[in-house]
Simulated scan of single mutants.
Amino acid sequence: MPSFRAAVEARDTEAIEALLAENVVFTSPVAFKPYPGKAITAAFLRGVMRVFTDFHYVREIAGPDGRDHALVFKAKVGDREINGCDFLHFDDNGLIDEFTVMVRPLSATQALGEAMGAQFERIQREALEAMGATEAR
């Protein structure tokens, strides 16, 4: 199984989703409350991939036990440059069960919020479709 970083850099949404635990909790830099569940987290990540351009990781920091990772990135949202970090925690099965994103500066964070807001209906629809497909199995 590829690393999360490798999956993101390859823009491999299936590999990214395969690395998420069913009970993953996604904490967005622009939303007040966290979003629990694999379907909504995967949908948010697909939405971010549609919004960010020139995305690339610049550094990876791992905890001594390998269960915590910080992936520092740079990207653009429209004409705004954004710097951020993905904080990942891995469960006992090696799947991501906590996913927190922080970004700066404020102007880029606001641009990200607007861009993701425009994606929100699609994100919700994708998550509901994925949950329906999972229940049908």
Rank of each mutant, 00 (worst) to 15 (best):
A70N: 09
A70Y: 14
A70F: 13
A70H: 12
A70G: 11
L71T: 03
V72T: 08
V72G: 08
F73T: 03
F73M: 11
F73S: 05
K74Y: 03
K74I: 12
K74P: 01
A75N: 00
A75R: 06
K76D: 02
V77W: 02
G78L: 02
D79S: 13
D79G: 10
D79Y: 06
D79L: 11
R80E: 14
R80W: 05
R80Y: 13
R80V: 08
E81C: 07
E81N: 14
I82D: 05
N83M: 13
N83C: 10
N83A: 13
G84M: 09
G84W: 00
G84C: 07
G84S: 08
C85T: 14
C85R: 12
D86E: 14
D86T: 02
D86F: 00
F87G: 06
L88M: 06
L88F: 08
L88A: 05
F90E: 05
F90T: 05
F90A: 04
F90C: 08
D91L: 00
D91I: 00
D91K: 00
D92Q: 14
D92G: 11
D92Y: 07
N93L: 15
N93G: 07
N93T: 13
N93H: 11
N93Q: 12
N93I: 05
G94S: 08
G94R: 01
L95P: 04
L95G: 03
L95F: 12
I96E: 03
I96Q: 10
I96A: 02
I96Y: 03
D97H: 13
D97T: 04
D97Y: 11
D97L: 06
D97Q: 07
D97E: 11
E98L: 13
E98M: 09
F99K: 02
F99M: 02
F99T: 00
F99H: 13
T100M: 11
T100P: 04
T100R: 15
T100L: 13
T100C: 15
V101Q: 01
V101D: 02
V101M: 04
V101A: 04
V101C: 01
V101R: 00
M102Y: 12
M102P: 02
M102G: 13
M102E: 10
V103L: 03
V103A: 12
R104I: 07
R104C: 04
R104E: 12
P105Y: 08
P105R: 11
P105G: 09
P105S: 05
P105M: 07
P105E: 05
L106M: 13
L106D: 10
L106Q: 12
L106P: 01
L106R: 13
S107E: 14
S107W: 06
A108D: 00
A108C: 10
A108G: 09
A108R: 00
A108F: 08
T109L: 14
T109Y: 06
T109A: 14
T109S: 15
Q110F: 14
Q110A: 15
Q110N: 11
Q110W: 15
A111V: 02
A111W: 08
A111H: 11
L112C: 04
L112D: 04
L112P: 04
G113S: 11
G113D: 10
G113V: 05
E114R: 12
E114H: 10
A115W: 01
A115C: 08
A115Y: 01
M116A: 06
M116C: 09
M116N: 03
M116Y: 04
M116E: 01
G117D: 05
G117F: 07
